[in-house]
Design a protein around this nucleic acid. Sequence first.
DNA 1: TAAGTGTATTATCACTCCTAGTACACTTAG
DNA 2: CTAAGTGTACTAGGAGTGATAATACACTTA
Lengths: 127, 127
Amino acid sequence: MIVLDLKDARPLYEQIVERFKQLILRGVLSEDEKLPSVRTLAMELAINPNTIQKAYGELERQEFIYTVKGRGNFVSPVGRLREARKEELREQMRSVVREGEAIGMTVREFVELLEQMEPEGRKEHRT
Amino acid sequence: MIVLDLKDARPLYEQIVERFKQLILRGVLSEDEKLPSVRTLAMELAINPNTIQKAYGELERQEFIYTVKGRGNFVSPVGRLREARKEELREQMRSVVREGEAIGMTVREFVELLEQMEPEGRKEHRT
DNA sequence: TAAGTGTATTATCACTCCTAGTACACTTAG
DNA sequence: CTAAGTGTACTAGGAGTGATAATACACTTA
């Protein structure tokens, strides 16, 4: 479920946060599903419990999970989180295009790139 | 020309590298133009010369500038660099779209987002 | 020759990441 | 109730990085 890359420059706790956010947004982990306990996951990944605690703390702060003392950490409702992430992706896309334009690329060029990705793009796809 | 953000989490030398790469790719700095000397820029930014040296070293390693000992640092030919950056942007775009699709967005949605950015998008723009 | 240039070295400080160990309060299964 | 499992908090220390400070050397050019 969680895989660490020790060669990665990013801190371990950050990799863990990133991975769980992915799993939650994509629905691999369901709403109210219980996450591995701090100590359990620390054992599995062979790292210090404090590092897991830091990751979970960050996930809770960002509202991806919620905590019940004595019971564990659980996945938050995903709706709002997913919408927020979508808006982030839209902004990233705009940012990429703006930089591209600054060095000579065109919006057209990007649109065509996207249309090549489209799986069902061969029929008439104008309204 | 170069502006530092001390509140930025990224290292100073990295901010400097980033900024010069931008200026070079966008043609604000011309081919063979001389960069500020290590000591001069350090004075202007009120930071340590070693930090500038580290930034310039990185820029040289990435072939954005070339060095002539005793003379200074100069902007490299920009053609290849610009093409490489374009390919990076294309890949970033694909990456954004792939993640978007994983959480329920569609290529169509992204295309429409792009077309809203297009400055000349109101005429018939289908071939 | 003197000034300006890149380059290298050593030392030091501050901060972050991670580990290690310990302790406490809460919840739940037995 | 008790024990095990849970989150949480704290202190301490090691390792690495970013930045500073000071100095020195070789090269180029006016």
